[in-house]
Design a protein around this nucleic acid. Structure first.
Lengths: 140, 140
DNA sequence: TTCAGTGCAAAGACTTTGCACTCAG
DNA sequence: CTGAGTGCAAAGTCTTTGCACTGAA
């Protein structure tokens, strides 16, 4: 994975096999996995990988802005390979987390401006979660 | 606190002193405390109160919709005495959580409709967090 | 009276820390 | 080489569970 190692180096990070694998794993899924899931998934290919390393690298990757930490309210953190602020919808039955694309984000840019004026905060980021039941769970 | 015991009974909950105190504590602050903070605060007045009871009751109160569980991304849950969906702004420096009131929520009602159409979900709730630096932290 | 609620302790889940070893640059 | 990164183990933090006791209705 030549591109990935370049992206990491640009951020001043060493392109270790573990780090590349963790980042790659996030880029290649839209399932918003947690640390444990990524660890289990990579253990096959990297038997010596430690859970610690997964946590450490998820932190580092989120710090430099390559990935995004998601807090779905389950008491664990999930991660998203797409770091740009976007919307998530969470099924309260099966706990699935899905991305929402569309024209919604336009409204949010407006709102950020309003919020800055109102609160006096310097707003750097936002997170919008919708909670409900996914089509599959609704069928039951 | 006569009103509080009535509110609890209407929800089918026994109005125990501990439960009333926990609910009252949330109603009388806008600081969005976590379980531990509430526990420490009430221990003066209720020396035998157990942390377990605080957790149990926060869960119950959130279940019946009297309070709201907030996940500020710190790895702990905070609680809000105002259960109606409203916006929160979180200072990334001092970790303060504040409410945002204003005309923003109108846009969100629109957005919820869009999201339902787009995703096929039945949306029951949403949470919008803004992250930034509060006026006090900006001064430093 | 009677069961929901409480309190204590212990366990559980997720995450972080400490430290010696290793390998990418 | 050399410090950033890794792996193992242990500890930490927040939260939940088990179970006998208690008190609100």
């Amino acid at each position: 994975m030549p591109e990935i190692s370049e992206v990491l180096k640009k951020k001043g990070l060493k392109a270790t096999p573990q780090r590349m694998a963790i980042y790659q794993a996030l880029l290649s899924t839209d399932a918003h996995p947690g640390a444990e899931v990524i660890y289990e998934q990579l253990k096959m290919a990297y038997p010596t990988l430690s859970l610690n390393t997964v946590y450490t690298n998820l932190d580092i990757l989120a710090d430099v802005g390559l990935i995004r930490r998601i807090d779905s309210g389950e008491g664990l953190f999930r991660y998203d390979g797409n770091p740009s602020p976007h919307l998530h919808i969470i099924c309260t039955d099966c706990r699935k987390v899905e991305d929402i694309y569309g024209d919604c984000s336009i409204d949010l840019a407006d709102m950020t401006g309003k919020v800055e004026k109102w609160s006096g905060y310097k707003v750097n980021d936002h997170a919008l979660y919708f909670f409900g039941q996914c089509p599959e769970c609704l069928k039951r």
